[in-house]
Amino acid sequence: MKVSISATQKTVWDEVVPRFCEVPPLFIGLCVGILAVSFLSFAAPARAATLSFDPQDHTVGMATPFEVGLRLDAGASVNTVSITLVFPPNLTPVDVSDGNSIINFWVDKPTYSEANRTLTFSGIIPGGYTGTGGRLILLKLKASAPGSATLTADAGRSVIYLNTPDAVADTFIVRPFTLSVETGKENMPNQIPDNAPPEAFLPSLVRIPDELGKEQIAVVFATQDKGSGISQYEVRETPSDAWFADDQGWQVAQSPYVLRDQDLRSVIEVRATDKEGNARIETIATPYPIPWYATGTFDALLTLAVMLLAFAFVILKRRKRKLSKSIKQ
């Protein structure tokens, strides 16, 4: 990016420029140069982003899985990443954790393709990320044959966007990592227990037009788990007049989840569960509860009342009949 003032671009300012910029042309150049350098130093990437691997060990065995983190160093602020990792024949991912990831919202959750031996994911970091060592995902891998195994990312199928208003792709470098797989080597298990549920979150309702433009109501949600990572989300819709929530009513869901009850007469619950089974349930109160006179409870009570009245009527009738009989006698 070239920064200069051309004759045709000269601009009239209403205020007096600083004194050292005032008269001599040389000083004007110096002044603008200083400002331009300071501008460039911020606006231009300080350095290319770097994707690297953070292995648990450089030498691994085949008996049990081991962990490798994928890290991002970003000299300039980046807000969106889409990465495709490539696995050698003797390494296979058995699990992927988003715990402690710098990605706040996932566009594509990590998905492994055995056919292509690739793992892809994408997500955003609102406001951007600048720094070193930011973990994107934590891979749990299993080695299947001894020898060397190189992990890398496919730069052609990966993209990182700068935190700009117009989605400018950042340049980035991939640092492949080569592991040595040895027979008999014992991998250290991860000793850190995860007893904490996912972070609290706030599900909300949105209207989303479908392909035909018809609006449908969906619940949206997202949270993080600082330990093992999110395993899944589930949604349960319980009619507001139900006496008990159905344990079998949970539906595995992804945000946005289009509600079955489009009349919003139900209590909506979202359950986030981490990979260790710790769960957090957040609830949206029924936006439009079923009116009392239309609930099943009311129907049951009304029926009971009618039956009682009928029973009382019959009893009274019988008594009256008995009384009349006794008077006649």
């Binding site: 566009v107 994408s122 955003i124 406001g127 966007y161 989605a167």
Partner: peptide, 15 residues
């Protein structure tokens, strides 16, 4: 696509 997500992330203001 991801460009739209990037633009959204830039203008993010939270709930």
């Amino acid at each position: 696509d991801l460009k739209d997500f990037s633009i959204l992330a830039y203008y993010w203001s939270g709930n």
